[in-house]
């Protein structure tokens, strides 16, 4: 099974993963910055396919990170995934973006049995979720995702860029303190969960915050 995975909840990234390949990696890319998704994503995907000598017809499913993440960036990946899935006529699945880091934690040497993944939610807040790990199993989501202040997180080791930003108030795990969700881990997680017969999400974005719109109050006096 060949999956094209996309995540734009923080950085822009895409990956081709397959259960026929070693480490399941066919190709991947990710950007450094979090603000140029519209420019880099489509060219990146086009290059991924070209370098692998593949076309949409070879892809069996499209997977997109559904956040949480800053809205505009998040939508760029989801609308890309929805459009590719529609044109290619291939199934589309969603995965919570923090799962990408959770899988990397599970595969690392300093994994805690219970832990938090946190990313930058801007406005002095983090997006976070709580996971449990048992030997040889995929990480299991216990709680979340939520958005809130880092100081209010449960007292557990915290992995991801959200921990690095607030290492003064949380137990940030050093090797992960600038880690962002990326499509490669997300795609690998999707592959593993599909192989285990688990159901994935649909592509509905997890905004976690309202649109900030205010219903106008009574008219202000102009005099």
């Amino acid at each position: 099974m060949l999956i094209l995975a996309i995540d734009t909840s923080a950085v822009a990234s895409a990956a081709l993963v397959s259960d026929d390949t070693l480490e399941s990696l066919v190709g991947s890319f990710s950007t450094e910055d979090t603000r140029s998704h519209a420019e880099v994503l489509a060219p990146g995907i086009e290059a991924l396919l070209a370098e692998a000598g593949l076309t949409g017809a070879d892809v069996d499913a499209v997977v997109t990170g559904v956040g949480p993440g800053p809205f505009t960036g998040l939508r760029s990946g989801i609308v890309t995934a929805r459009t590719l899935s529609f044109v290619w006529g291939k199934p589309l699945y969603g995965l919570m973006s923090l799962d990408a880091i959770a899988l990397e934690v599970a595969e690392s040497t300093d994994a805690a049995p219970e832990f938090i993944v946190a990313t930058d939610a801007r406005r002095k807040e983090v997006y976070w979720a709580r996971y449990a790990l048992s030997d040889g199993q995929l990480p299991r989501l216990l709680d979340g995702p939520h958005v809130g202040f880092a100081a209010d997180l449960p007292e557990l080791p915290v992995y991801g860029a959200g921990a690095g930003l607030y290492s003064d108030v949380v137990k940030a795990v050093p090797g992960f303190s600038s880690r962002q969700p990326e499509a490669l881990s997300l795609g690998q997680f999707a592959l593993a969960r599909l192989a285990a017969g688990e159901r994935l999400l649909d592509s509905t974005p997890l905004y976690l915050r309202e649109s900030d719109a205010q219903v106008p109050g009574p008219r202000k006096r102009a005099l």
Partner: peptide
């Protein structure tokens, strides 16, 4: 604008 532009680019890549 970002939504339409990303959708259009995906359409261009896919077709």
């Amino acid at each position: 604008l970002m939504v339409g532009v990303c959708a259009a680019k995906a359409l261009a890549v896919a077709t």
